[in-house]
């Protein structure tokens, strides 16, 4: 199987603190890969590096065997990698519909067009409607995103991330702060929407991680201390000691 994302000797330092230290990671095409680790381990920073929000201090990042480190986020996105944010990051004054539509426009080839009526683009309407239904927000279509409930905003965050049709998806703690029932719904949604795509997900809920992931990597203090199938990770003494501990009995 070919690799979707590959990190080679990636390091990131902020001033003198080194946050990511010599990370090598490879995520196969079509795999659901979970990234776990304690708070402050550097998971979000790793996402920032892969998605182009930050540049690695050392090392290189490849998307389908092409180097993407150093490219700006929009170019990485155009190559088919899309990410969500741990802290909801939507277009607050625009409606749910408009939020999703913005995420569809580039992928449908309309780019910076100023000669087309945005309401008259059938494929944009179809795709936006599809995503709106997928994330279960049809009843909230015309509400400004800033006025949604927390769980609804998280759903919209996922919707924006997948709307462009990228086949490599990075989700940063998509279920954080959700109730048990909301989490279950969100996981079902993620499972459905990432069918046939590559998923890299940061998640704290271990039942979610072990239920969803094909492979798991454990990041502690900016280093990957283990990488493998759920069974391998569960049985790994280093992981138990460093992170999982009592959580996985």
């Amino acid at each position: 199987m070919s690799t979707a994302i590959e990190l080679r000797g990636v390091e990131k330092t902020f001033g003198i603190t080194s946050v990511i230290r010599n990370v090598n990671l490879s995520v196969a095409q079509g795999e659901r890969h979970a990234l776990i680790g304690p708070n402050g381990a550097g998971k979000s920073t790793l996402f920032n590096l892969i998605s182009g929000y930050m540049k690695p201090s050392v090392g290189s990042i490849l998307l389908r065997d092409e180097v993407i480190s150093g490219l700006p986020p929009f170019q990485i996105n155009r190559r088919g990698l899309s990410r969500s944010f741990q802290v909801t990051n939507v277009f607050a004054k625009m409606t749910v519909w408009e939020n999703l539509r913005c995420a569809v426009l580039w992928a449908t080839g309309h780019r910076y067009a100023f000669w087309k009526n945005v309401d008259n683009l059938p494929e944009v309407r179809d795709r936006t409607a599809q995503i709106l239904q997928d994330i279960n927000l049809v009843s909230r279509r015309d509400v400004p995103a800033g006025l949604l409930t927390y769980a609804e905003q998280r759903a919209l965050e996922i919707g924006i991330t997948i709307a462009g049709g990228a086949d490599v998806i990075l989700l940063d703690e998509p279920t954080a702060g959700m109730s048990h029932a909301e989490t279950e719904r969100a996981v079902a949604l993620i499972r459905r929407l990432t069918e046939g795509r590559t998923l890299l997900i940061v998640e704290h809920d271990m039942s979610v991680v072990f239920g969803l992931a094909d492979r798991i990597s454990v990041l502690v203090y900016g280093q990957i201390i283990a990488s493998g199938t759920p069974e391998e990770i569960r049985g790994n003494p280093k992981v138990k000691e460093a992170y999982l501990g009592e959580e996985v009995a």
């Binding site: 939507v90 277009f91 625009m94 913005c102 995420a103 426009l105």
Partner: peptide, 10 residues
Amino acid sequence: DNPERVQFVG
């Protein structure tokens, strides 16, 4: 509304 997020939708 959000120039940062715009970069992540292409």
